[in-house]
C-alpha cells in the first residue's frame, strides 16, 4: 500500500510541476479615458477590459489568477476645502450616489487631499488605497466587464486622471 502511494505521489509531482511550467506573470495597463475629467457629484464609466486592452483580450481565456489591481494617476482637489474621493464597482448601471453607496462595492478610497493639492497615485504604493480585493479580482477574472463610479467626498471639485495596472498569472 505504502509503495503504491509513493508511486502515485512521485508520478503526480511532475504532472503538477509541468502544468505550472507553462504560465507567466503579465501586467496590463487599462486607460480610464474621460473618467473624472470634470468635477461632478458622480462620474460613471463602463469598463470592458477586452475592448480597452488588446493584451487582456488575448489572454482573458488563459487567466489563472489576479495578483494585483492598482489605480495609478493623479487626483486633484480644485475645491475650497479638504476633500477625497471613492471609487465603486458594480455589474449594474446605477443612477445616483446613494444607490451606488448602497449596492456597489468600494474598491478605492483616497485620503483627504488639501485644497489645491494633488494626490499622486504611484504603482509602488497604490495598493494601499485599494479595497475589497476579493470582489475586485473576481470581476477582473470573470468577464472583465463592469461599471466604475467615482464619488467625491466633502467637495464635488475633485478631478482625476487614472489608469488601472492589473497583474495576472496566465497560461503562455
Amino acid at each position: 500500500m505504502k509503495r503504491k502511494l509513493l508511486w502515485a505521489v512521485s508520478l503526480l509531482i511532475p504532472v503538477v510541476i509541468a502544468g505550472c511550467l507553462v504560465s507567466g506573470t503579465k501586467v496590463f495597463i487599462i486607460d480610464l479615458e474621460g473618467f473624472g475629467a470634470a468635477p461632478s457629484n458622480m462620474q460613471t464609466i463602463h469598463v470592458n477590459l477586452a475592448d480597452l486592452s488588446s493584451d487582456y483580450d488575448d489572454n482573458k481565456d488563459k487567466l489563472k489568477s489576479i495578483d494585483a489591481v492598482v489605480m495609478v494617476g493623479d487626483v486633484i482637489n480644485l475645491g475650497a476645502q479638504s476633500a477625497g474621493m471613492k471609487i465603486y464597482l458594480s455589474d449594474d448601471n446605477l443612477s445616483s450616489p446613494g444607490e451606488v453607496e448602497d449596492e456597489a462595492i468600494l474598491i478605492f478610497e483616497s485620503p483627504s487631499i488639501a485644497v489645491g493639492d494633488t494626490l499622486h497615485l504611484r504603482w509602488a504604493d497604490g495598493m494601499s488605497y485599494m479595497r475589497n480585493f476579493g470582489e475586485l479580482f473576481r470581476q477582473v477574472k470573470d468577464d472583465g466587464e463592469f461599471y466604475l463610479y467615482g464619488i467625491p467626498e466633502n467637495s464635488i471639485n475633485i478631478q482625476y486622471t487614472l489608469e488601472i495596472a492589473i497583474t495576472v498569472t496566465a497560461g503562455l
Partner: peptide
C-alpha cells in the same frame, strides 16, 4: 524593481516602478 509606462503618448506620460 520592475517598470511600466503609464499614460503613454499623452502629456502625462510617466514611467513608474514598484518594489
Amino acid at each position: 524593481d520592475p517598470e511600466q509606462t503609464f499614460f503613454e503618448d499623452t502629456p502625462l506620460e510617466r514611467t513608474e516602478k514598484t518594489d
